[in-house]
Amino acid sequence: MMSGQAFLDRIKNEFGDKITGANLAAIDPWVEVAPEGLVEVCKYLRDQPDLRFNMLNCISGVDYFEPDPKKAAKLDWQPHLEVVYHLSSLPTKISLVLKVILPRWKGDRPGDLPEVPSVSGVWSTADWHEREVFDLVGVRFSGHPDLRRILCPEDWVGYPLRKDYEMPLEYHGIRGR
């Protein structure tokens, strides 16, 4: 088994500036990938004979945003979105975390969803997971075969797991709050 640093050097060699960061000291070490290189990196990780990350455990979207300006001033991060990919390899029993960091809105225009290429062509699990992240966090997965809301109704407005989300006052005559 190769060490974390050796692995990082290897994929940095392979993909250069598409690997935009990493944190090997975290409890679950992660590698940050630029959105445009994501599919390429995922295919490489899946197909290399000694890596074989053939299983995608989970895709999660996290919204980093603090609505209160007083609290926001104390934080050491800027508002952003993260899409986190948890991969496992069945043959080597190793797991890996990939991250894509995005602006909360594309080009800072509220309402314009940030975009990530879909990995549903690499692992078919990604299909529903990406729909869920789109539905609840508001990330557009370009190249996804069928990007619709999955848990919320089709005509739902807003992205419930964003930190600045507010429940609607009513939905088709049902009181919201």
Binding site: A26, I27, D28, N57, C58, S60, V62, V84, H86, S95, V97, L161
Partner: peptide, 30 residues
């Protein structure tokens, strides 16, 4: 920090992805 912890639940792998933010309430509980 953030962690992904999973167990072999009866139905399959049941995992939780947690983002901690210093308080005792999760920042994200996926």
């Amino acid at each position: 920090e953030e962690v992904y912890g999973a167990i072999e639940s009866p139905n399959g792998e049941l995992g939780f992805y947690l983002v901690g933010d210093g308080t005792d309430v999760a920042y994200r509980a996926r």
